[in-house]
Write a protein that binds this DNA or RNA. Structure first.
Lengths: 160, 160
DNA sequence: CGAATAGGGTTGCATTTTAAAACCAGATTT
DNA sequence: AAATCTGGTTTTAAAATGCAACCCTATTCG
């Protein structure tokens, strides 16, 4: 059967994954952040099948993560550019990259280091912080009215 | 054909997505963070098919995001618990939640607010920061030696 | 004690997705 | 005018997904 969809889930993680939670979408967004804009470039850099790329780009455009703009005069050339919504995925992509570098380092390759354009210093880890900027773990947080945290549910779950 | 895998990709985002980049894995991790540990509980909270849940739990255990521990005396009851690697997905999950709440707010529901257990204050947004704690956007960063940022590639791409 | 039920799966089947490669059509280049 | 670039669509076969049914081991109930 088809993949289950969570468009109307009460869980915002589920709704987010609905838009960028498949195998390719975040990689497309990542490459868009590195400056890729053209169909053929995405295709070659990612090694993705063209039909799948079509589908993903269309879906990302539908969800307003990318916008498709005509370039060139006679309109048969396009660019896919990040929207604000798409650019707002930056922390997620970077956190994923850092997680991958930490826990699955490439055997023969230094982890990519991103740097601050202004100072040239390496970007520190993305973390969940309290209001003062101190790092928090999952144990340091709670959901107010949270005696039933698992009510933050996802699927059909008819009843609580 | 089969889904493409990125186990040995030079891109750490691709390697990360290889482990938690499908429709269900991050939701399983999310619920684990909220305290769910048992097969049946995951199944009911997520509304996921049992065989798929089996597969995902096994894969997450293989990848050391979860560990499977026997509970009860006679060993036919198990719990799936987060490892350090799994807990380290916290910023990603939270960033996804915040993104979903910001750009796809649930029609009839306030966004979940997470709070600092110590102070009771709401958790601020997860962001990419410079060394001083100032927020950075994708435009504020660069990859040193980065005249070919797209070399941060993913697929087969035989040559740079 | 025997039956029912809970926990944690596995199996079989129909439906979708995916990957890969072939094909297409409008611009642009040669 | 022919070749090429760009951005797709179509076709086909292999996997992945969802659902329901079945299994086996405890534990609980009568």
């Amino acid at each position: 059967m088809a993949r289950k969809r969570f468009d109307d889930s009460s869980c915002s993680v589920a709704r987010a994954l609905n838009e960028v939670g498949d195998w390719w979408s975040l990689l497309v967004v990542l490459h868009a952040m590195y400056g890729t804009r053209r169909f053929v470039d995405f295709q070659q850099e990612l090694g993705i099948a063209r039909n799948i790329l079509c589908d993903r780009l269309a879906r990302l455009v539908d969800n307003e993560v990318l916008k498709k703009v005509e370039v060139g005069e006679h309109g048969s050339r396009f660019e896919y550019r990040l929207t604000d919504k798409g650019r707002d995925l930056f922390p997620i992509v970077i956190a994923l990259r850092q997680w991958g570098d930490k826990w699955n380092p490439a055997p023969d390759q230094a982890p990519l280091d991103l740097r601050d354009r202004e100072t040239g210093r390496t970007i520190p880890r993305v973390e969940v912080q309290d209001a003062d900027g101190n790092p928090l773990t999952v144990r340091d947080v709670f959901v107010p009215n949270g005696d039933d945290a698992s009510r933050v549910s996802v699927g059909k779950k008819k009843t609580g």
